[in-house]
C-alpha cells in the first residue's frame, strides 16, 4: 500500500467512526440515526441546490485550511485561524470604507491585499513571540482568537457601525453592491478563481520549492534542519505569515462575498473547522480540497437537520467534535491496530 492510500483510508475511517459515534449517541438520546444520516446526505449533496450550498461553505474553508496545513506541516501550531479570519475581514472592511466611491477594479484588489495583510499581522505577533522568546504559539494564537473577536465586536459597534441597524446584533454598514464579489449564495467566478489560485500556489510552494521540502523536514525534526544550517526562524515566520494571510483572505471573501457586511461574531467556528479539515487531510493540499468539500457539506446539512430529523442544527458541531476526537487520537490508535494486524499497515 502506498503511503498516500493509507492516509486517505485513515481519514475516511476516522470520519466514518465519528459519524457512527454520533449516530449511536443521537439514537440513544431518542432521535433517529437513519433520519439523521439521511438529512446529512440530502442536505450536503443530494437535494437540489445542496451541492451549491456545500461549495459556498467549503470554498472559504479550503482557503483557511490550506494555510493551517502549511503551518502545521512546518511544525508551528497556529490555531489562531479564527482570529486571523476576523482581523482579515475587519481590515478589508476598513479598506472598503476608506476607498468608498473608487472603481471596483481598485477597491476589490486593495481589500483583498488589506485582508491578507491584516490576517498576516494577526499571525505575526504570536510568530515573533514564539521565535524570539519561545512563547507557546498554541496559547498565544488561541488567545489571539478571543482578542480578535472583541476587536470585531468593537468595530461593528463603533467605527463601522451601521446606524440603521436594529441594535439586535452589531453589524457594519453593508458594502456597496459594486464591491461585492458574489451574491449571498456565495458562489461566483471571482471566488472560484481566488480559491484556484490559492490551491495551485500553495501546492507549488509545498511540492515544488526548497521551502516545501525544508519546512516539511523542520516540522518533523527541527534539530536535524538546524544541524544542516537552516535558519529555521525564516521557515517558521513564513509559515505563520502565510497561514495568517490565507485566513485573512477567507475573511475578506466572506465579507465581500456572501456576507456583504461585518457582523459581530459571524461564522464563529470557521477557523476551528479549518484546523479539523487540515488534520483530516493530513496537511495535503489536494486532500484539503476534498475534506473541505465534505465539511462544507456538513455545514450545508445543518439547515436540514431540524427539518428532517428534528435535531438542532448544532448537532453538526457535535459531529465535527466527534471527528476531531478520533482524528487527534489517530496516531496511537493506528499504531496499535497496525501492531495487532502484524504490521500490514506499515508502509513500504
Amino acid at each position: 500500500m502506498t503511503e498516500r492510500l493509507v492516509s486517505v483510508l485513515r481519514a475516511v475511517i476516522f470520519v466514518l467512526l465519528g459519524l457512527a459515534l454520533c449516530g449511536i449517541m443521537f439514537q440513544l438520546a431518542g432521535y433517529s440515526a437513519p433520519l439523521m444520516f439521511q438529512a446529512i446526505a440530502d442536505g450536503a449533496f443530494l437535494r437540489a441546490g445542496a451541492l451549491q450550498q456545500a461549495l459556498r461553505w467549503s470554498l472559504p474553508l479550503f482557503i483557511t485550511a490550506t494555510g493551517v496545513a502549511l503551518s502545521f506541516r512546518a511544525g508551528y501550531f497556529n490555531i489562531g485561524a479564527q482570529g486571523q479570519f476576523y482581523i482579515g475581514a475587519v481590515s478589508a472592511a476598513f479598506m472598503a470604507e476608506w476607498l468608498n466611491g473608487a472603481p471596483a477594479a481598485i477597491v476589490i484588489p486593495a481589500c483583498i491585499a488589506s485582508g491578507m495583510l491584516g490576517g498576516a499581522a494577526w499571525a505575526l505577533w504570536p510568530g515573533l513571540l514564539r521565535l524570539k522568546s519561545g512563547a507557546d504559539e498554541v496559547i498565544t494564537t488561541l488567545m489571539g482568537n478571543f482578542l480578535a473577536g472583541l476587536v470585531l465586536l468593537y468595530v461593528t459597534a463603533g467605527p463601522l457601525k451601521d446606524p440603521s441597524g436594529s441594535g439586535q446584533q452589531a453589524s457594519s454598514r453593508p458594502l456597496d453592491a459594486a464591491y461585492r464579489i458574489s451574491d449571498s449564495m456565495g458562489l461566483s467566478p471571482t471566488i472560484v478563481a481566488i480559491v484556484a489560485v490559492v490551491g495551485v500556489a500553495i501546492w507549488l510552494l509545498i511540492n515544488r520549492t526548497t521551502f516545501g521540502v525544508l519546512s516539511g523536514l523542520a516540522g518533523r525534526n527541527p534539530t536535524m534542519v538546524e544541524w544542516q544550517g537552516a535558519r529555521t526562524w525564516r521557515i517558521g515566520l513564513a509559515s505563520f505569515l502565510i497561514s495568517g494571510a490565507l485566513a485573512g483572505l477567507a475573511g475578506t471573501v466572506e465579507l465581500m462575498g456572501p456576507n456583504g457586511r461585518l457582523t459581530g461574531g459571524f461564522l464563529p467556528g470557521h477557523g476551528f473547522t479549518a484546523i479539523l479539515i487540515a488534520l483530516v487531510a493530513n496537511f495535503s493540499v489536494v486532500g484539503t480540497a476534498f475534506v473541505a468539500l465534505f465539511f462544507g457539506g456538513l455545514a450545508s446539512a445543518a439547515l436540514y437537520l431540524p427539518i428532517m430529523a428534528g435535531l438542532p442544527s448544532a448537532a453538526i458541531d457535535v459531529i465535527n467534535a466527534a471527528i476531531a476526537l478520533f482524528i487527534t487520537a489517530k496516531s496511537s490508535l493506528i499504531d496499535r491496530i497496525a501492531k495487532l494486524k502484524g504490521r500490514t499497515w506499515k508502509t513500504s
Partner: peptide, 27 residues
C-alpha cells in the same frame, strides 16, 4: 541531529544541497 526519521530518504538526503539554494527556489 542527523536524520528526520519520519521524513523520506530523499528529503533527508537533499536537505544539505537544498539549503544552499534560495528558500523559494523551484525544484
Amino acid at each position: 541531529e542527523g536524520l528526520s526519521l519520519s521524513s523520506s530518504l530523499w528529503e533527508n538526503w537533499s536537505a544539505r544541497s537544498l539549503l544552499q539554494m534560495p528558500l523559494l527556489a523551484a525544484i
